[in-house]
Design a protein around this nucleic acid. Structure first.
Length: 618
RNA sequence: GCCACCUUAGCUCAGCUGGUUAGAGCAUCGGUUUUGUAAACCGAGGGUCGUCGGUUCGAAUCCGACAGGUGGCUCCA
């Protein structure tokens, strides 16, 4: 398995070389950056100067690549002393390679830590000691600085396809010149490539932006502004249900809801430190009455802190837990906005706990249990990333407290048998945290829930409580979110479910289709609707003058969980034959006739207990 | 913010290299039909072709700016 993967990566990386040699044939002036193998293919960062690649060039490049492959050039490894290599790069007119080689010569490794991993296969070194020689690979007349590995010859590659070209800063640094990243997918066989492209097509179909429109969940308006979604009635059902569930879990764990204004004086964030750190992301609000400078709240913690700080606190009160899910505003850079997954109005199911150091374990355990409950009901797998500090001095607070807290966090993860991994250097500057990585139906991982310890803000705001011995002590804070940003979570969840929401979340739970528009039929449907509403169900009647077949189809397209057709038979028997959305059925069909009242009660029960499968028998 | 690409009816899209009143399907509305589990039939309305400016005898089509979007880069407390 591992060996097979290695071969696959060597093949993909070889394709990067083949692509580079093809590009150089077409554009002899091309300057090359790095060209690694990646998860599903390969890319090469290329600088063509004023000439720019576009998708129209793909056919041409792919054709040239096929020629290189057809020529079956051997990949030959060679070594050069580092100084000779630098000279080679200069003479070959490859300034990016020259820069890499010079870094290599100077430090024995490339400077950018993050890139080191990605650039595997492109950069020769990587050890800490100074480098004497570097290796090159040559295919045909194309020589590239490279550590390998490669397949034997250009003929020995699998199926590939160029997918996109995009901008990429040299070495990932925004201050560096921008290159073009030419990206393709590659697999051993045509079949695997086809399957992968199909998966991409499936992902495209599930795209939350597309489904958001098709299922009428949210809209954007140029007049309102980019990154500011407007939720329709259907989308608002999802919002209320999801945030309501989060609130329910928190309430049960002793969290209290608070309400705060959305604008605040700039001074609050100057004191919290957010003004310095995130100044450019804050929306400014100007008062026409006073000279006060206001900002739209980009987070809730400083407000919650003000509630805590409003009067003296006793140790007997702790932990104090404030929650709310109102919108926060961050002025993200334009190019970073993306559907619902990156917006400028963000609703986090946010909460802040003020407690003693001794209480951290209990609080983390309680929060982790809520997370387990939440994602259990949502039917999503997750694992936890314990984000700890590293040895650098980028962190505030007592190192001893950090150590203690990190030990507690890992202990909690162990005790609750959470699938977790530790990442050092990922902590926030103010404390260690647990980030929850949720896996969706297509196997992609997303960071959603989080809980973070904060030693810094209590310090900045001088928060205290009176301990049992009468002394003033400093509380610690825990920030937590179960869904994280509701908007981002919804984008993940829409794609996870492909818009087929479980009954408790479905904006429309039951659709009633009338066979005709006769009075008796309409009356029956109306009565059914009234009964459903009494049970708190969301039901729509389709009484349009269309064929039953067409109305059924419409209900399917809207992914309504239950559809019932009503006509003479139903009226005389006071029963219905529910049509059940396929993913809800336990074994295919859920069949028979059922009394109206029993049907509605069953559905209401399913909604209340938030189950994923129907309890109507098959 | 940076690079590439995109923007034609509510939605999905046609409209070749600039040339008379800009098309289709779905959706909407009206009529016929009174329908039994994934699309009945007929008809109608709907677009200053994202906005502004320029080139041209003539612009949906070419150029520029701006806005919005897509894919990445950077960023994501």
């Amino acid at each position: 398995m591992a060996e097979k993967d290695e071969n696959l990566m060597a093949m993909r990386h070889s394709l990067a070389h083949i692509m580079a040699s093809a590009v150089r044939r077409l554009w002899p002036e091309a300057k090359f950056g790095v060209g690694p193998a990646v998860a599903d293919g390969f890319y090469y960062d290329i600088d063509l100067g004023d000439a720019k690649l576009s998708e129209e060039d793909f056919a041409k490049i792919e054709g040239e690549m096929r020629k290189v492959i057809g020529e079956d050039q051997a990949f030959e490894r060679s070594e050069k002393p580092i100084d000779e290599a630098v000279k080679w790069a200069r003479e070959a007119g490859q300034p990016y390679k020259e820069e890499l080689l010079n870094d290599l010569k100077r430090s024995g490794t490339t400077v950018a830590k993050d890139l080191d991993r990605e650039e595997m296969g492109t950069i020769a070194g990587g050890s800490d000691s100074a480098v004497d020689t570097v290796s090159f690979y040559t295919n045909g007349d194309f020589t590239d600085l490279c550590r390998g590995p490669h397949v034997e010859s250009t003929g020995k590659v699998g199926a590939f396809k160029l997918l996109r070209v995009s901008g990429a800063y040299w070495r990932g640094n925004e201050k560096n010149p921008q290159m073009q990243r030419l990206y393709g997918v590659a697999f051993n066989t045509d079949k695997e490539l086809r399957q992968h492209l199909q998966m991409l097509e499936e992902a495209r179909k599930r795209d939350h932006r597309r489904l958001g429109q098709e299922l009428d969940l949210f809209v954007f308006s140029d007049l309102v502004g980019s990154g500011l979604p407007l939720f329709t009635p259907r989308g608002t059902v999802l919002r209320d249900e999801l945030l309501g569930f989060s609130e329910e879990l928190q309430r049960a764990a002793g969290f209290q809801k608070v309400a705060i204004p959305h604008i605040t004086k700039q001074a609050l964030y100057e004191k919290s430190g957010h003004w310095d750190k995130f100044g450019e992301e804050l929306f400014l609000v100007r008062s026409q009455e006073t000279s006060d400078q206001f900002v739209l709240k980009p987070m809730n913690c400083p407000h919650h802190i003000q509630i805590y700080a409003a009067r003296p606190r006793s140790y007997r009160e702790l932990p104090i837990r404030y929650m709310e899910s109102t919108m926060q505003y961050r002025d993200e850079k334009k190019g970073e906005l993306n559907g619902l997954s990156r917006v400028r109005g963000i609703s986090i199911d946010d909460a802040h706990v003020f407690c003693t150091l001794e209480q951290i374990e209990g609080e983390f355990t309680a929060i982790m249990n809520m997370i387990k409950d939440m994602y259990g009901v949502l039917d999503m797998r997750f694992r936890a990333r314990l984000s700890f500090r590293d040895d650098s001095d980028a962190y505030l607070g007592e190192p001893a407290n950090w150590e203690k807290a990190q030990a507690i966090i890992e202990d909690v993860a162990k005790k609750l048998e959470i699938d977790y991994f530790i990442e050092e250097g990922e902590a926030a500057f103010y404390g260690p945290k647990i980030d929850i990585m949720v896996t969706d139906a297509l196997g992609r991982e997303w960071q959603c829930a989080t809980q973070q310890l904060d030693f810094v803000q209590p310090e900045r705001f001088g928060l205290t409580y009176v301990a049992a011995d009468g002394s003033e002590q400093r509380p610690v804070m825990v920030h937590k979110a179960l869904l994280g940003s509701f908007e981002r979570f919804l984008s993940v969840y829409i794609e996870h479910t492909a818009g087929r929401f479980p009954v408790w979340l479905a904006p429309e739970q039951i659709r009633v289709i009338t066979v005709n528009q006769e009075d008796a039929t309409v009356e029956f449907a109306d009565k059914l609707a009234a009964q459903a509403r009494e049970l708190g169900l969301r039901l729509e009647i389709d009484n349009s003058n269309e064929s039953v077949g067409k109305k059924i189809r419409a209900a399917e397209v809207w992914k309504v969980p239950y559809t019932v057709v009503v006509g003479e038979k139903e009226i005389s028997s006071s029963s219905v034959v529910p049509r059940i959305r396929q993913d809800l059925a336990v074994n295919g069909d859920a069949g028979g006739s059922i009394g109206v009242e029993q049907f509605l009660k069953t559905v209401a029960n399913e909604a209340k207990s938030r189950v994923h499968k129907t309890s109507l028998h098959g």
